[in-house]
């Protein structure tokens, strides 16, 4: 099976501090990885390196066989944990703009998601609430048939209604057989049913990695229980 993501001995240093220190990971099509860890454990740094927005100090990353760069970015859909959509655009303009760069953008799916997410297309991004902005960001990501989907805190700071819609959209619109996905989150419980692999990061190192079902069986508890156990 061809790996969609191969990470070998990934290290990233900021000044004198190692944000990531020797991460190895391989994901294949159909894999959904839950990436968890406390603040500052290296989750966002790892996703940014895979997305090509930050560069490793050591080690290698391959996405569909390509090093992070313009080619790999065409294979990767990245949802950052910041509001990165141009505020002066309307929702419709934002969708038109982003979709123009990706051959894998599915406009029909985008329309379906917009309706489900209840996002008003004539509104300016600047006027959207936090929850609405997160929904729009997810529409832009989940409308693509990308090989690798990276979601950094997709539930961060949003209300329960938006949270339910985001989780439902991730679960229903993800191409289970064709893509791999990494979801970084603090809210392990909400997204746990989607994970089939789990990677816990602690101080930039792998604290725990494995198949979610096997870990549940070994620890006799949910992934959230294991999370509490590891980071207690």
């Amino acid at each position: 099976m061809d790996a969609i993501l191969e990470i070998k001995n990934l290290k990233k240093r900021y000044g004198g501090r190692w944000a990531l220190n020797g991460i190895d990971l391989e994901l294949n099509r159909g894999d959904v990885l839950g990436l968890a860890g406390p603040n500052g454990s290296g989750k966002t740094t790892m996703l940014k390196i895979i997305a090509g927005l930050t560069y490793p100090t050591e080690g290698s990353v391959l996405i569909a066989g390509h090093k992070p760069g313009p080619v790999s970015k065409a294979h990767t859909a990245y949802l950052p944990d910041v509001d990165h959509i141009y505020r002066w655009m309307t929702v419709r303009q934002a969708i038109e703009y982003v979709s123009g760069f990706y051959d894998d953008f599915d406009h029909d799916r985008a329309e379906r998601l917009i309706e489900f997410m209840d996002v008003e297309t004539d509104m300016k991004v600047a006027h959207l609430s936090k929850g609405m902005t997160e929904r729009l960001k997810l529409v832009l990501i989940m409308s693509r048939n990308a090989d690798l989907i990276l979601l950094d805190e997709p539930l961060g700071g949003i209300d329960p209604t938006s949270r339910d819609k985001v989780i439902y959209a991730i679960a229903t619109e993800y191409r289970w057989e064709n893509s791999a996905m990494i979801i970084s989150t603090h809210l392990v419980r909400d997204l746990e049913p989607i994970f089939d692999k789990v990677l816990f990061l602690k101080d930039g190192r792998t604290a725990l990695f494995g198949n979610a079902d096997e870990l549940r069986a070994q620890h006799n508890g949910s992934v959230e229980d294991i999370f509490r156990e590891v980071f207690a």
Binding site: A51, G52, L53, P70, V71, K73, A74, T76, Y78, P80, V82, D83, H84, I85, Y86, R87, V98, F101, Y102
Partner: peptide, 12 residues
């Protein structure tokens, strides 16, 4: 306004 996240993630 953090729009560089979008700019730098485009395949360009």
């Amino acid at each position: 306004r953090s729009n560089h996240y979008l700019m730098l993630s485009l395949p360009v």
